[in-house]
């Protein structure tokens, strides 16, 4: 058996083994469904969610919050990161406040956002933005600062204008760090959106999880954990692919 077939076998066998153990534990010890449902119950719940179409409005809502929060948050993070990266003097002034804002637990701020922006979409997007903003900002600052001194000298020799230097040298050089920030931000956006839905509103994957939990629909809760994990992975992979395409020179 070659190494690749062996590896593939392991890739299939490991989850099957885990599911088998899970199933065995539940049946042997007769665990109640609302504590730990058997894997087949979770699976059929998952299938029902998609075939009946219940999930679609919730999924669309969550994806909407993620996309909006991620777009606004990364745009703002990039803009401020750009300003701080280019003019360190500004960083000395606003840096401490930003740091304070970042260390404050966002989950604790969530009720405040609901108080300020209502139970609707706005407060959810604001919470997501607050989580996305910081990693993108830090990535942008790092990226712009990481431009080697000699590249600055080269720009000085060739007398590049500020604008040209930015477009031709600084931004392309900063792309790897910006993407590192964006990838962290994408995961944060998913967490933020679901968390926000936990706290308010009647739609979204987060809401569905709370609903499942409070009504002891544990198979549904498990199915939702799977769906949200897969969503997080999908969001991350989408970014990783874009990065791979943009950074093929690395």
């Amino acid at each position: 058996m070659s190494e690749t077939t062996l590896r593939r076998l392991f890739a299939v066998a490991t989850p099957l083994l885990l599911i088998g153990a899970w199933w065995a534990y539940v049946t042997i010890f007769n665990v109640p469904r609302f504590v730990l449902p058997p894997p087949d119950a979770v699976f059929s719940e998952l299938v029902r969610l998609f075939t009946s179409g219940t999930i679609w409005p919730h999924l669309a809502h969550t994806v909407g919050v993620i996309v909006a929060g991620f777009a606004i948050g990364s745009a703002a993070g990039f803009a401020l990161g750009f300003a701080l990266g280019k003019w360190p003097r500004i960083e000395r002034i606003v840096g401490p406040y930003l740091f304070f804002f970042q260390t404050a637990p966002k989950i604790a701020l969530a009720p405040l956002f609901i108080l300020w922006f209502g139970l609707g979409l706005t407060s959810k997007i604001v919470l997501t933005v607050s989580l996305v903003f910081f990693p993108v900002m830090v990535g942008t600052i790092l990226g712009l600062r990481s431009v080697p001194a000699n590249l600055h000298s080269l720009c000085a020799i060739l007398k590049l204008s500020q604008r040209e230097k930015l477009v031709r040298v600084e931004l392309p050089a900063a792309v790897p760090e910006i993407f590192a920030g964006l990838k962290v931000a994408a995961v944060q956006a998913t967490i933020g959106a679901i968390l926000a839905e936990w706290l308010s509103g009647g739609t979204g994957l987060g809401y569905l999880m709370v609903f499942a939990g409070t009504t002891y629909k544990t198979p549904l809760l498990f199915a939702m954990v799977l769906v949200t994990s897969l969503l997080g992975i999908a969001v991350y992979q989408a970014l990783a692919l874009t990065e791979k395409w943009l950074l093929s020179w690395r």
Binding site: P148, N150, L151, S153, L154, I157, L158, K159, L160, R168, V169, P172, A173, V175, L247, W249, R250
Partner: peptide, 26 residues
């Protein structure tokens, strides 16, 4: 003008995202 002086550093200082031709044409 930027074209008055040529400078070669101790390291190559090429732009890693550009091909060799694009670097020389930069």
């Amino acid at each position: 003008k930027g074209s008055d002086v040529g400078f070669v550093f101790q390291e190559p200082v090429l732009l890693p995202w550009l091909s060799i031709l694009d670097n020389v044409r930069f």
